[in-house]
């Protein structure tokens, strides 16, 4: 018998007896069956998010600031372009990495720097030498101040973590209120053929492993900038 059958066999044997329901201190068993999907009301328990889009942007900005991410909202693409050029000049970017996409192309073209595109394969050492990565995203989440990226829509797995500065270019209509909405959006967009990697990025890379003191840029980007218009 294979190990798979052995393990599944032991599981089935073990499950012949019912376990008490959580929170009942051993008293209630399956008589009161749990709801089919107990977590489906998560929205009612998670931190509250207003239905007003303006307040959602304000919440996103506040959460992003708490995470030490830089979030800027623009009235026009020209303003966004100006801000990006300014960041690039301040940090003296020499080369950047990015991927094909309507927004990301606009961003990398506005800079006019040598650009490594990941779409058709790339050299990892070359990406490591880039000063910044410019990517799009699948969603901005107001509730957490984070962004959602995937291996299919945002240039692969490494682009959003290898270069020291990650710049996300987003459209206003990409903001979702909360985590349940973000998961629903991913399901609508991709199920059943999900990208092989989906990542919720909530702030720049960090660690507290030395005396629990926050340090940014442990292994991933030291800076996360989200430009939205």
């Amino acid at each position: 018998m294979s190990e798979r059958e052995n393990i599944l066999g032991r599981i089935r044997e073990a499950l012949q007896f019912d376990a008490p329901l959580p929170g009942s201190h051993g008293h209630a068993t399956t008589d009161h069956a749990v709801a089919e999907s107990p977590a489906s009301h998560a929205r009612e328990w998670l931190p509250s998010v207003s239905t007003d889009i303006g307040e959602q942007f304000a919440l996103f900005a506040k959460n992003a600031a708490d995470l030490k991410a830089d979030f800027q909202l623009f009235a026009s693409r020209d303003d966004l372009k100006a801000a990006l050029v300014k960041i690039s000049a301040t940090e003296k970017w020499q080369r950047i990495a990015s991927h094909e996409g309507e927004l990301s192309n606009f961003a990398s073209q506005s800079l006019g720097l040598p650009t490594l595109l990941t779409d058709h394969g790339y050299d990892v050492q070359a990406m490591e030498r880039c000063d910044a990565a410019i990517t799009e995203c699948d969603a901005l989440v107001a509730q957490t101040g984070g962004v959602v990226v995937t291996s299919r829509s945002t240039g692969g797995r490494a682009l959003s973590v290898l270069p020291p500065h990650h710049v996300v270019i987003a459209r206003r209509d990409q903001l979702v209120a909360d985590l349940p909405s973000a998961f629903a959006l991913l399901q609508r967009r991709y199920a059943p053929d999900y990208p092989s990697m989906i990542s919720f990025i909530t702030g720049p890379s960090r660690t507290g492993d030395i005396e629990r003191i926050l340090v940014l840029g442990a292994h991933g980007p030291k800076k996360l900038t989200i430009l939205c218009c």
């Binding site: 692969g156 999900y194 990208p195 990697m197 919720f200 990025i201 702030g203 991933g220």
Partner: peptide
């Protein structure tokens, strides 16, 4: 900071 869901090795059409 990073919550990442993996559903396979590199898939056709993915770059890494």
């Amino acid at each position: 900071c990073y919550n990442t869901m993996y559903s396979g090795p590199r898939q056709p059409g993915e770059c890494d």
